[in-house]
């Protein structure tokens, strides 16, 4: 790792100004992700600006919903009683991530900004179009059991690792961003770009913009939501497939729904066709099976990850069944 500077910012505005003014500067919150980048040679910032003690860790409840500070720790939000009761998908997604030690350190903002765990991306001695455009993608002719089955580009088949982002997508959350020119809000749907020509582009953030908070509307679906993460071991593993769902049932039929998949694409992946399959129908075997089928209709797996299609189908069905059983 290269030598680097470290400063503790005085305020969010000062932090944003510091990083904006230095192309080789980066924010550090909990440090559980960016320190890996430094050690693995994925990034070599000359300056780390610590945003860990700027009071960005509040969890605030209002009539409209939740406002989560970007510096809030995963473990603190996951154990918040209001979050657990009113936004079960959020609590469950947070608890499904990482290990207790990491959740105690990692912040929500940093969680959203995780980079892919694609093994070829993470090891700089492999060619990788995402790291160095045009060098090729060894996942295509190598082990790609963990890679994308939806929305991949020719250049990159990596998947996004966050559980939290999948839950937020099912909750219509908005990301609050602070830059030198002020604040703006970005819908989580727009926070992660769709696959384009340049797989290096991972978020809507401009250099120097700091995620300061996440707004989560309470809405009609949050309470009837759920999260399921399928992984190779019982704990502390990235998702093979995860599903976040939130369903509004009025007078026995689904009035609205959000279904998002994790571990299947370069970004949290909303499956509108699956949502549509539920609308106007009871949340029962027939509609659930149709939704599960619709969720994978566009799947385009690689030879070594076809199994993920079956998991995704099963996981959508399972989450919706569990929401149905809870009523």
């Amino acid at each position: 790792m290269r030598p680097f500077g470290y400063v503790r910012a005085e305020s969010p505005e000062a932090a944003a100004a510091l990083v904006a003014g230095d192309l080789s500067a980066a924010f550090v919150g909990g440090g559980t992700e960016i320190l890996n980048w430094l050690k693995d040679g994925l990034a070599d910032p000359a300056l780390l600006v610590d945003v860990g003690r700027l009071g960005l860790d509040a969890v605030e409840v209002s009539d409209g919903g939740l406002r989560l500070g970007s510096g809030a720790r995963m473990s603190d939000v996951a154990r918040d009683r209001h979050v657990r009761a009113e936004f079960p998908v959020l609590a469950r997604a947070l608890e499904a991530g990482a290990s207790p030690q990491l959740r105690n350190m990692a912040t929500l903002g940093g969680n959203l900004l995780q980079r892919t765990r694609c093994a070829y991306f993470r090891e700089p001695s492999f060619p990788c179009n995402k790291r160095v455009p045009g060098t090729g993608c060894p996942a295509r002719d190598g082990d790609h059991a963990m890679h994308a089955i939806l929305g991949a580009s020719d250049a990159c088949v990596a998947v996004h690792p966050s559980d939290l982002a999948v839950a937020l997508l099912a909750l219509d959350a908005r990301v609050e961003v602070l830059g030198v020119h002020g604040r703006r809000e970005v819908a989580i749907e727009d926070f992660y770009p769709h696959a384009g020509d340049d797989p290096r582009r991972e978020t809507a953030l401009r250099h120097g913009e700091l995620v300061v908070g996440i707004g989560v509307p309470s809405g009609p679906r949050a309470r009837t939501s759920g999260y399921l993460k399928v992984r190779e071991r019982g704990s502390f593993a990235f998702a093979l497939v995860s599903v976040a769902a939130a369903v509004e049932v009025v007078e026995g039929v689904v009035r609205s729904a959000r279904i998002a998949l994790g571990g299947v694409a370069h970004r949290p992946w909303r499956v509108r066709a699956a949502e549509d399959a539920l609308l106007g129908r009871p949340l029962a075997d027939g509609s659930v099976a149709d939704a599960a089928e619709a969720a994978v209709r566009d799947a385009d797996p690689l030879p070594g990850n076809r199994y993920k299609v079956a998991i995704a189908r099963g996981a959508v069905r399972r989450v919706l069944e569990e929401i149905g059983e809870r009523g």
């Binding site: 765990r117 093994a119 070829y120 090891e123 001695s125 492999f126 060894p138 002719d141 190598g142 082990d143 190779e232 071991r233 019982g234 704990s235 502390f236 593993a237 990235f238």
Partner: peptide
């Protein structure tokens, strides 16, 4: 990797061991 002959995930995130 079948072409490059290199280990794909030489770490405890790619090489899974049982947790409790």
């Amino acid at each position: 990797h079948p072409r490059l002959g290199k280990y794909t995930s030489p770490n405890l995130s790619g090489y899974l061991l049982p947790t409790n």
